[in-house]
């Protein structure tokens, strides 16, 4: 059970920006073979230009669940195996005061949660059979409580955190390393222009910490940076009668 964790053949889903892009770059710099997957061809092209040792890229919309098994197999055969899956795709649509949009909720759940499940199911089955492998899910501190500002987003991240926990409980006993990363505020396109941000860190910093946690091989579930654990503890402890009065 103590063989070193290998992050040498990785698929990074949602690698065209933000934390996903930063993880893909760091993996490629460390010598891993990395296949990056994202929806936007132009963004993929930009990422590849900046980091030429990212060897493969695939245009894929994570809400096209049907194409996931085939794409996974294609990548696995092109890389001659896969030992790491990083799921970093995520959207956070604005939700205005008084706005109730099922379309936005649906898109958020499809991208942040169902897409993750589609990819992780395939990865988990293969990794369990191979008795090795690392699955990294980028969740969020937003999943700790249901905030009034982002109902769909908070729900998707709470569900993703729970799903990753189930996955960890299912397959860590078979040597699969399931890592849940719950970043606080990260300086990416997703948060740009949002108000009330603090302790903002760069995507690269999150990526660095994520890979360090993954290499431990202990199926970590962690806040990044770790000081957010304190915030999370306070937020979780807030009684509802208080929480519902806050605009946070």
């Amino acid at each position: 059970m103590s063989s070193p964790i290998r992050l040498s053949k990785a698929i990074v889903v949602g690698a065209s920006s933000g934390v996903g892009e930063a993880i893909a770059r760091r993996l490629a710099e460390s010598g891993a073979q990395v296949a990056i997957v994202a929806r936007r061809q132009s963004e993929l092209a930009r990422v590849i230009q900046c980091a030429p040792n990212l060897i493969k890229h695939f245009v894929h919309d994570v809400t096209e669940f049907d194409s996931v098994p085939g794409l996974f197999e294609q990548i696995a055969s092109e890389l001659d195996g896969v030992d790491t899956l990083v799921y970093a795709a995520g959207i956070m649509p604005d939700c205005a005061e008084g706005e109730y949009s099922f379309a936005k909720d649906h898109a958020t759940i499809a991208t942040n949660l169902l897409g993750a499940m589609a990819w992780m199911n395939v990865a988990a089955a293969r990794f369990e059979a191979g008795r090795a492998g690392t699955i990294i899910g980028i969740s969020s501190i937003a999943g700790e409580r249901g905030r009034r500002g982002f109902p769909g987003y908070c729900t998707s991240k709470a569900a993703l955190t729970t799903y990753l926990e189930s996955l960890r409980n299912r397959c860590s006993r078979y040597g699969v390393n399931v890592v849940t990363i719950k970043p606080g505020f990260v300086d990416t396109a997703m948060t740009r222009g949002k108000k009330g941000l603090f302790w903002l860190v760069s995507a690269d910093k999150v990526a660095k910490r994520t890979l360090a946690l993954a290499k431990r091989g202990s199926s970590a579930c962690a806040f990044v940076p770790s000081r957010w654990a304190l915030v999370a503890a306070i937020v979780r402890a807030l009684p509802s009668f208080l929480f519902k009065r806050l605009n946070f």
């Binding site: 669940f65 049907d66 194409s67 996931v68 098994p69 085939g70 199911n121 395939v122 089955a125 369990e128 059979a129």
Partner: peptide, 9 residues
């Protein structure tokens, strides 16, 4: 190809 569940056998 896409819809059958996977089983670790």
């Amino acid at each position: 190809r896409t819809g059958a569940s996977l089983r670790v056998l």
